[in-house]
């Protein structure tokens, strides 16, 4: 247990360091933007106002509200304090709604969509890759080129193709939104069914894009392991094929878990764009609205949340990996 604790603390401190760096980057980068976002909303609100002093007063009020007149360092401490209290300020583009409110409405859509989809894609991809390595022949000849093609295909391209075939052409599934536009969220069967139907296309487009890369990786790992000395030795010993395959795939699986930890950031990025294609009410769509509305509190908060999600997923995977792989324990003993 002592060794695990060392591993765990090591990973935890690394998680905290990356988090602090990501936090600082998140604060600094959007605020370097040229142009004054407050001036933009004021000009939108003051349309048709001819009184210059009135416009000036509105401008000052908003500057005060968003704190854009203070020095950057002071803004940073205000920001840290606010974030610790779960207060991300007001959204500039959807003013009177707070950022926390806007994000609170969208984050669960993203979590419930992306994490199941990425895990299902990872499982299917690894199974296909392992089968391709083991069965070889025709199966491999079909699966591999398809996987290579699919993994090179942009995430939004897959989303659009599914949208056109199943949404527009066959009309099996709706083309946009998270639930029927005529419904109000509640716990009726009608609403839940509508959510399930709207879930399918974004879900499968994310699954499909994550399958390709995983299958290719798993195939080459398995081929490498199948040629390893211990497999030959086990065969000479007369151990049953089925049992050997079990060993091989467990060994090939371990690097794939690290692979998942390293690629989860990219996958989430692709999935956010897929959300935009389907106008799914998650973080990707919120981010798009923030960009369109030049809304830096919203963008900063959503990128922060995405980063936290990715870092946490990464952290959890690494902890699991430490428990699964006995070599980690051995390495920490030195």
């Amino acid at each position: 247990m002592e060794r695990y604790r060392k591993y765990f603390l090591n990973k935890l401190s690394w998680f905290l360091i990356t988090f602090v760096c990501a936090f600082i980057l998140n604060f600094i980068l959007p605020r370097l933007m040229p142009g004054d976002p407050v001036a933009a909303i004021v000009s939108r609100m003051a349309q048709g106002m001819s009184n210059a002093t009135g416009v000036q007063a509105i401008y000052q009020q908003y500057t005060e509200l968003f704190g854009t007149n203070k020095p950057l360092l002071q803004q940073f401490f205000i920001y840290v304090n606010n974030v610790l209290h779960g207060n991300f300020g007001f959204s500039l583009s959807q003013y009177t709604r707070t950022v926390a409110d806007v994000l609170g409405a969208s984050i669960w859509w993203t979590i419930c969509l992306q994490f199941p989809a990425i895990i299902v894609g990872w499982l299917i991809g690894n199974t296909l890759g392992a089968l391709a390595a083991y069965r070889k022949g025709g199966f491999d000849k079909i699966i591999m080129p398809i996987s290579i093609f699919v993994s090179n295909f942009p995430a939004f391209g897959m989303a659009i193709i599914l949208l056109v075939i199943f949404g527009v052409g066959l009309k099996w599934f709706p083309t946009s939104g998270g639930y029927g536009f005529d419904l109000i969220p509640n716990f009726s069967w009608k609403f839940i069914w509508s959510v399930i139907v709207h879930y399918q296309l974004p879900f499968w487009s994310i699954v499909l894009i994550s399958i390709g890369g995983q299958a290719i990786g798993m195939r080459s790992m398995s081929i490498y392991e199948l040629n390893a000395d211990y497999v030959k030795y086990a065969r000479f010993m007369g151990i049953k094929d089925r049992k050997i395959i079990g060993y091989v795939f467990r060994n090939a699986m371990l690097p794939q878990i690290t692979g998942l930890a390293l690629s989860i950031g990219t996958m989430v990025g692709g999935a956010l764009v897929a959300e935009i294609i389907f106008s799914y009410p998650g973080l990707g769509f919120t981010l798009l609205n923030g960009v369109m509305g030049q809304d830096y509190p919203l963008i900063s908060a959503s990128t922060l949340i995405i980063t936290v999600m990715v870092l946490s997923a990464n952290f959890i995977i690494e902890i699991l990996y430490g428990i699964i792989d006995p070599r980690i324990k051995a390495a920490q003993a030195d």
Partner: peptide
């Protein structure tokens, strides 16, 4: 570990 597309967006 910090997702590159987040940096790209920012």
């Amino acid at each position: 570990v910090i997702p590159s597309f987040v940096l790209l967006i920012l």
